[in-house]
Computed example of a mutant assay.
Amino acid sequence: MGVTSEGRASDPPAQIGRRGPLFACIWLFFLIDPLLQAWSRRDTVAGVVGMVAVVAFAAVYMTLWLGARAQRWRPVANPSLRWSLGYLAALVALGTVVVACVGESGLACTVYVAVGCVMSFPFRVAAVTTLALVVGTIALGAVEDWGSQIGTAFSIMAASLAVFGLRALISRNVDLLEAQSENARLAVDNERTRFARDLHDILGHSLTVITVKAELAQKLLDVDTERARAELVDLERLSRDALVDVRRAVEGYREITLPAELVRARAALRAAEISAEVPGSADQVPTELRELFAWTVREGVTNVIRHSRASHCEVRLTPTSAEVRDDGTATPSPTGHGSGLAGLRERAADVGATVVTTHLSPGFVLRVVRA
């Protein structure tokens, strides 16, 4: 219908999407009178031409509604001038044939021409066209001595106003749905960018260390077998940890990981305008302590941001401990059983570690350590 679009937006609300053509089809009953008039003259050329013209008029009129529905009502929101002119020209031509063949009853076509104008042209153009149809209908009735056409003129005005309201509603819905579609696309793009960035930050250092250790082990094979074996054991551990991080990242961070928490801690502290010292990797932390230390970093950094009023925060990791230290003036407190510091103590106890909190002047230290 002369309107194309890139991307795909959802349909307008179902009642408009499905019932729009039905709404238009129901009002075709006004064409029954000219059709019956033509049928009564079926033994004449004018009668046959009139019947064909009425049916063709109805078919052309419905193309607007059916085509707009097929293209998710975008032609209504952004009509093509070229298509609109052709569409209205076809309606006017067929309507003229109907009037010429059946007389006064054919003026019912003007109502549909007015509706087509309102659906296809900008408001100002449609208003002028509709007014011209009203004047023309009244004038034609007087010239042909068909009597007052005030009723037809009123029908034109009433139908135009009703359809204008419908078009305004459709246009708003189309704009809203296209905006929603654009927001959804931007959200997906942002999520992809975030995922790529986080995956790079989580795995970049680990993969670099794996490469270096593999090269070192290869060089040590002929020089120091025991050290080479130790490097290979460490290499296997790092590879397994990296694989776990990849799987959890792909799953959408449904499970907590230490590399991911380090990345998030750095970003969260920066967003809170707190200067941060956060390790770039967690390679030295044993596999069995990584989840506990991840919870430690999350809980500690969360408390720093929410409660401490700190200007600086430092995260420290060793093979046996994780520590979050700040220079704030407020003291974080446990948030209850199963969460906060209380929940962290339960997790630490499960792996034989302890939670130690220390108040400084100023500052606060959260430390989890396994002897």
Rank of each mutant, 00 (worst) to 15 (best):
F154M: 08
S155H: 08
I156T: 04
M157C: 15
A158Y: 10
A158Q: 13
A159S: 02
S160H: 03
L161M: 12
L161E: 13
A162D: 10
V163R: 02
F164I: 10
G165T: 08
L166M: 12
L166F: 04
L166H: 08
R167N: 09
R167G: 01
R167I: 02
A168Q: 13
A168D: 15
A168F: 13
L169E: 12
R172C: 05
R172A: 06
N173H: 09
N173I: 04
V174E: 04
L176K: 09
L176M: 10
L177H: 14
L177Y: 12
L177S: 11
L177Q: 06
E178D: 13
A179V: 10
A179P: 07
Q180P: 05
Q180A: 08
S181P: 04
E182C: 04
E182V: 08
E182M: 06
N183V: 11
N183H: 15
N183Y: 12
N183A: 15
A184F: 08
R185Q: 10
R185T: 07
R185F: 04
L186T: 09
L186N: 12
V188M: 12
D189R: 12
D189K: 11
D189L: 12
D189A: 10
R194F: 04
F195N: 01
A196I: 02
D198G: 01
D198W: 04
D198H: 03
L199K: 09
L199G: 02
H200D: 01
H200Y: 00
I202A: 01
L203F: 00
L203Y: 01
G204L: 05
H205S: 15
S206V: 06
T208E: 05
V209C: 06
V209K: 00
T211D: 07
K213M: 02
A214C: 02
L216F: 06
L216C: 07
Q218S: 12
Q218W: 10
K219Y: 15
L221F: 13
D222I: 09
T225S: 13
E226W: 09
E226I: 01
E226D: 14
A228Y: 07
A228T: 05
A228L: 05
A228Q: 03
R229K: 08
R229N: 11
A230Q: 13
E231L: 13
E231K: 07
L232E: 08
V233H: 15
V233Y: 13
D234I: 06
L235A: 00
L235I: 06
L235H: 03
E236I: 08
R237Y: 07
L238I: 02
L238D: 01
S239G: 05
R240N: 03
D241R: 02
L243Q: 10
L243S: 05
L243D: 11
